[in-house]
Design a protein around this nucleic acid. Structure first.
Lengths: 162, 162
DNA sequence: TTGACTCCCTTCAATTATTGAAGCTACCAT
DNA sequence: ATGGTAGCTTCAATAATTGAAGGGAGTCAA
């Protein structure tokens, strides 16, 4: 299977990756979350080639993750902004940040990014918890069940009925 | 800049992406979180080519995200398992799942994956909240500050001192 | 003890994706 | 009119990915 068909599944993780799972894409989103708005800013701070950045921006716009907004008529100049759909990726970015700090960089280093609640100034964090008992949940505390449709899709891959 | 240098920064998001940011990698991790252990399972359920899967598995093993464990001496057979470092990516996967359900698939569809707290049977969810006031936080409620090192790194890219 | 089968990959040629340098248009400042 | 900046696009070279095929090392059944 080619990567271009990765979204053809009931799995929501694969669906998400079909939109934001290519190299550089999350880095572009990071810049937008950090307040970057212009092509050159995004290009310089991500380090990607201008060509690829333009390809990625078009794709993200098409998917509705970002929107272009005219900020100068002559010459026509657009800035890029996250839509609601794009802002919805906040927990994913925060998850990567948290994991990178814990497992990739040295935990004693000065933090590169500090995220605070605007209203009260305290830091913000990500957590997985149980909707019933509110306890914090780690990967081992959870069990996965598959919906019947997705279970059938997976079974079909095991024993192809062609 | 080439993708291979994407981890050369103080940004923890980029650090994380240097490890798990390539195409297919997160899908491999999904399978492992779903309980897949063997090469062929991973290959069939992700749909990626065997070659690329073997490349990705080696890289993940090298990074300490997964470990190979011998489960049969003769013939030598290994299974792949998430390490603690790998399990730490749980919130990221859950974030993608939640976002995919909300923004990519139809929200009324039967869910493909249901995740429950083993201890009490209720569903599990991801949230961003303030460490001070415990309020739920959206992207717009938070402000980002950069550490001095990372701020300097970024400033250097704007005005290269070569 | 042959043949069929499974598991777990590896190899290779063909196709795609990505890079990095250069170029282009439109405007602004001097 | 000359130089500079913003915002891209084009293009040839390089690297990543695919899909088909193959191969070794065992197990099982006849």
């Amino acid at each position: 299977m080619a990567w271009s068909n990765v979204g053809d599944t009931l799995c929501p993780i694969a669906g998400a990756l079909a939109v934001v799972g290519e190299r550089w894409t999350i880095l572009v989103l990071r810049e937008l979350f950090l307040g970057g708005r212009r092509f050159d800013d995004l290009q310089i701070q991500t380090g990607m080639s201008p060509h690829l950045l333009s390809v990625r921006l078009k794709s993200l716009e098409q998917e509705g993750v970002i929107a272009r907004k005219l900020y100068s008529e002559r010459p026509a100049r657009y800035e890029y902004r996250l839509t609601e759909k794009g802002l919805g990726l906040y927990p994913v970015l925060l998850g990567l940040k948290t994991w990178g700090e814990r497992w990739v960089h040295n935990i004693d280093d000065e933090p590169a990014l500090i995220i605070r609640h605007k209203a009260c100034g305290h830091e913000v964090s990500l957590s997985v918890s149980c909707d019933g008992c509110s306890q914090p949940i780690g990967a081992r505390d959870a069990a996965v069940t598959m919906g019947s449709g997705y279970a059938a899709e997976r079974e079909g891959r095991r024993s192809p009925t062609d």
